[in-house]
């Protein structure tokens, strides 16, 4: 099931979006979240969709991937759509059958919210699909660097994040392996009452914790042996480079925002 998730995974590539500086992409997504809220009528939402579509094209990620990856959140989108559809009571009635009454405004709001939701999920997915986790971590470390003044341990947080990301696949494999080993010993995690299922998780969790602690200990030793003693006096192997295209992509957002403001009600 987890293997179908695309959110948070990286697909290697060499598109315009792939080559953008991770900082540019982070700032872009951050600003985009705000820009989305400017839209409030058919034309502005239409432009948002168009813009998103353009970004998808630029990332050269197959639409099929994205749609597949949206599956886990489709339920949420439908749910919010229905919520607005049934509970907004404004404008003329467009449908009335027994106890179901749908107003025009409800349909409109439902569609708008769904679009908003979809473009946000799609663009955030594109960020993670086209950027290696390590670049995202690096970008975060640099962008958050000013916060060091307020004693925020930015370097440590970034290192923690990058190590966690690095170990996700390892721990997923491990979980799969232990789960199978216990299933082979007759443990059943998929059927039975809630209580039975909770009990069946113990034989999975304990070995997983034991192994995670062992790994953490080994890793700490390995890091110490390789001379790690905190962020002080360290140099950086990863360098991010901000070039014209990075400025351009941020500018494109500003232009988008301006157009939306002009065309909104």
């Amino acid at each position: 099931m987890l293997e179908k998730m695309i959110f948070g995974r990286y697909i290697p590539g060499d598109s315009f979006i792939h080559r953008l500086d991770a900082r540019a992409k982070l700032i872009f997504v951050f600003l985009f979240i705000m820009v989305v809220f400017i839209a409030n009528n058919w034309i502005t939402y239409g432009i948002l969709l168009l813009f998103t579509f353009l970004i998808i094209r630029l990332s050269k990620i197959r639409l099929y991937f994205l749609i597949n990856g949206l599956k886990p959140v489709v339920f949420l989108i439908i749910f919010t759509f229905l919520l607005h559809l049934f509970f907004t009571r404004e404008g003329p009635i467009i449908f009335d059958w027994k106890f179901i009454t749908i107003y025009e405004e409800g349909l409109k709001q439902g569609i708008f919210i769904s679009i908003r939701f979809t473009v946000l999920v799609v663009l955030t997915s594109i960020l993670t699909l086209t950027t290696t986790p390590i670049s995202i971590t690096d970008a975060l470390e640099i962008l958050l660097n000013p916060l060091k003044k307020w004693k925020l341990p930015v370097h440590e947080l970034a290192l923690m994040m990058s190590i966690s990301l690095r170990f996700i696949p390892t721990l997923m494999d491990e979980t799969d392996k232990i789960m199978k080993a216990q299933m082979a010993r007759g443990s059943d995690m998929t059927t039975g009452s809630m209580k039975e299922r909770m009990n069946a998780i113990v034989p999975l969790l304990i070995p997983l914790f034991v192994s995670a602690f062992k790994r953490a200990e080994d890793l700490a030793t390995a890091m110490e042996v390789r001379g790690y003693k905190g962020g002080e006096g360290r140099t950086r192997y990863r360098k991010l480079e901000w070039v014209t295209r990075d400025t351009l992509i941020i500018l494109s957002l500003v232009v988008l925002a301006a157009i939306l403001v002009y065309l909104r009600n």
Binding site: P133, T137, R166, K214, D218, R234, T235, R236, Y237, R238
Partner: peptide
């Protein structure tokens, strides 16, 4: 597995150098 610190091969090799 438990001594691979970097996210990629080159990052891992660089780790001690950075330190």
């Amino acid at each position: 597995d438990n001594q691979f610190v970097g996210a990629t091969v080159q990052d891992d090799v660089a780790f001690a150098l950075e330190n």
